[in-house]
Design a protein around this nucleic acid. Sequence first.
DNA 1: CGTTCCCTTGAGTAGTTTCAATACTTGTGG
DNA 2: CCACAAGTATTGAAACTACTCAAGGGAACG
Lengths: 244, 244
Amino acid sequence: MPDSLQHPLTGSFLAGRMRHEMTSEDRDHLEAMAGECVYLSDREMLARRGKTLTRACLLRDGLMLRTIERGNRRSIVGLCVPGDFVDLQGVALHRLDHDIAAVGNVELVAFDHAAIAQAFETRPALGRALWFASLLDAAIHRRWIQMLEQHDAPRRIAHIYCELHTRLAFTGRAEAGVVRTPFTQFDLAEMCGVSAVHANRAVAKLRDMELAEIRRGTLYAADWDGLKQYAQFDPAYLFGVSAA
Amino acid sequence: MPDSLQHPLTGSFLAGRMRHEMTSEDRDHLEAMAGECVYLSDREMLARRGKTLTRACLLRDGLMLRTIERGNRRSIVGLCVPGDFVDLQGVALHRLDHDIAAVGNVELVAFDHAAIAQAFETRPALGRALWFASLLDAAIHRRWIQMLEQHDAPRRIAHIYCELHTRLAFTGRAEAGVVRTPFTQFDLAEMCGVSAVHANRAVAKLRDMELAEIRRGTLYAADWDGLKQYAQFDPAYLFGVSAA
DNA sequence: CGTTCCCTTGAGTAGTTTCAATACTTGTGG
DNA sequence: CCACAAGTATTGAAACTACTCAAGGGAACG
């Protein structure tokens, strides 16, 4: 029986990464720990910076943003795709250092911190899996730092879509040559640390270079290999099983 | 007996953060797990991207850089201060996504992955502490992403020194108004994602604004509060006990 | 005492921002 | 089905920021 049917709530967790190394008992246990489902619509916040949390949520469908607001300016410091625990930090750090917001409609499932803490005691392998997931997040953050330090705006946008495509593919959600998102150009600007006008020109450059067309958040690749090369995208940092 | 004497090798681990929440048994256990000491001098590499690791190292003295090289350009994506596990990722991810290099002379102590993995099984609280440390790293990465997205070069440099001062203070290594590092302006440029020439002008701007003087890597604050305000430094993301 | 590395400064160029105006989309209500 | 409003995308021009290239100055080390 496929994993996704056996574990309808948690089947995407670490899929394509170390999920295959987890025992079926641990996978069953995680599924059994799942609490209520949470639904949010576009731009709704799941959690805010500084808030104390008592549960952690696994994203089941849709995309979410990690954001930090400062004055009237917002930065997007990370993306969440299905299969990601979006606020796992809260279990150990108790409060969040950033906000978590939906882009488009999203579906999550909640886990009580107490249940996760207990799993840490009784099921070390599950604890390791959660740790692994946190380390993956950090590796992605580092790649973003490098991207912001070295790439210009068009390359940043290209890289973000390449990363998304690979991360979505881990859970079987990728389409060949297409990455569907509800991002506005304003969102892209906030991810890249540039103005909205410049993000627009960056999108136009990708189109002019005949690498990809981005319409209403969705990227249609004209030359997928060329795009990956242009973005200097190397998926090793995502630790997928195929890339290992 | 002070912690630093009782645990000469590991007494700095999570000091000022959740160390006080760890039981003395766990602290003793961590100290007992420590293996051989490692010494590196300026610009020496501890580990390289892609390499498979079998042990993890705790930084005891000196500073280290997390770097990613791409072509002939290097990015600095993070800093390590005493008390940090510099390559803890390797325990769960097996290989590194970045390089780890010394700046100045450093002193580390090594832990076998096998010992850490076993501690994860037998001492869940120690496992949680390691997880906590990883989550802290991720929070710092997120702040860097925001800094790169929103701040200009002088503010980035100011922020890096503010962060360092706070992180060094956790282990009692901070001096009032001074942050000593062996960074060259070239290093600062690689942390900020700007050219070395521009980093020099940024340093000059901090001097002209009478906020701080940076000579041979060491920052002498002329107006520490003004500097923190200019950098928009808010230490909450470092999860220190006083800032909690 | 010179070599080397690091820092500093100037001038021209490229990339990015702001402001402002115009068009395209999508959804809503008449 | 059309008109309108709101949000989103596009374009131009001027100002600004940061980059490269290039040359010169200063400090540390053998």
